[in-house]
Nucleic acid binder design. Structure first.
Lengths: 174, 174
DNA sequence: CGAGTCGGTTCGGTGAATGAACCGATGCTG
DNA sequence: CAGCATCGGTTCATTCACCGAACCGACTCG
């Protein structure tokens, strides 16, 4: 959302969450962070988001302790944004929203498939592995392109790198 | 969100979902619909939302087949908005967002508690009943005020009615 | 030295959100 | 029957976030 960001009169945890991740673009930034995107320029290229909006959202997410900004090289100074523990806990939200869109907008065609790293079992939207029958967190989840992927012929570095399966939270690009 | 509502270049079910429920206020309207709010004036009183925005969102949700608008009395003509099957499927999204806010913004203090209607077991954020060990949908879930409820002393009819436990999706007000 | 990359900030224009006022249809009261 | 209240909106002026393009400083590479 984003205009007045607050829902002051709602005594509900949902409203508090929406004040943080309910703004336009925010959840897509967090999703990309799960995919392993860490650098400003990669978010920018993959999301087609105005630079000022990206700067603002990253700063808000850092202040909310969802992302951590850290310098990974001096000279030239370069920063990266990595999910914190609080940020990783947003995974069920992203997963449930993607699930709804898959079922009700895309007629069940998934753009991404999730598997348990190691055992290879399909991970369902609640995080349950079909083989282990255990709940699998994002760090042990592997994402791979699904049948509906790449409909839009994007050519940015992030889109290209997403064609290979890889584990969530691991850096996607060098 | 709401300003440009589309995320056209994102080949992702998440983006499609956000185009619908990612606008400011929308998820709070849907949440109230789960709580049993059905009438324009009750949404208005409970959400402190501008009338024009509420009208617009309700219309969008009806067009998206998330809510159904139906006339429940002639003379004077009165309409109510009820969740469709697609709308009911949004429950995991709302539940996971509320869960995050509860844990990370409210320090684990819940405003609402969810129980399996009949067996009385606590229903966890994934819908699992602690007693039955089965997944329980919203229609069989009962909501009751939790320890963090009513911090804000609201006095509208919806807030008052929410003090009694009742089943989700059942009409909250006469 | 000059061009390029990275991670931003600045700026003007557009359009959605906001809150208050207004409105038409109907019912209720006296 | 007059007058007022209720419901479900619409209209309007103002505010403010988003947008896209341009600009910028620090640094590296050739």
């Amino acid at each position: 959302m984003a205009l007045g960001k607050d829902y002051g009169q709602q005594d509900c945890a949902l409203a508090r969450t929406l004040e943080l991740v309910g703004e336009r673009w925010t959840l897509l930034i967090v999703r990309d962070a799960f995919y392993g995107v860490r650098r400003y320029s990669d978010f920018l290229a993959h999301l087609d988001i105005p630079r000022a909006v990206l700067s603002g959202r990253l700063q808000t997410l850092v202040e909310a302790d969802v992302l951590e900004k850290r310098r990974y090289q001096e000279s030239p100074p370069r920063e990266e944004y990595v999910l914190t523990e609080r940020g990783v806990d947003l995974w069920p939200i992203i997963r449930s929203m993607a699930r709804w869109g898959e079922k009700h907008v895309q007629n069940g065609v998934a753009c991404r498939l999730y598997r348990h790293h190691g055992c290879g079992g399909t991970v369902d939207p609640t995080g349950l592995c079909a083989v282990c029958a255990r709940v699998v967190g994002p760090a042990e989840t592997e994402v791979a392109p699904g049948p509906g992927a790449n409909m839009l012929q994007r050519q940015d570095a992030v889109t290209l790198a997403m064609r290979r399966p890889h584990r969530l939270l691991e850096p996607l690009l060098p």
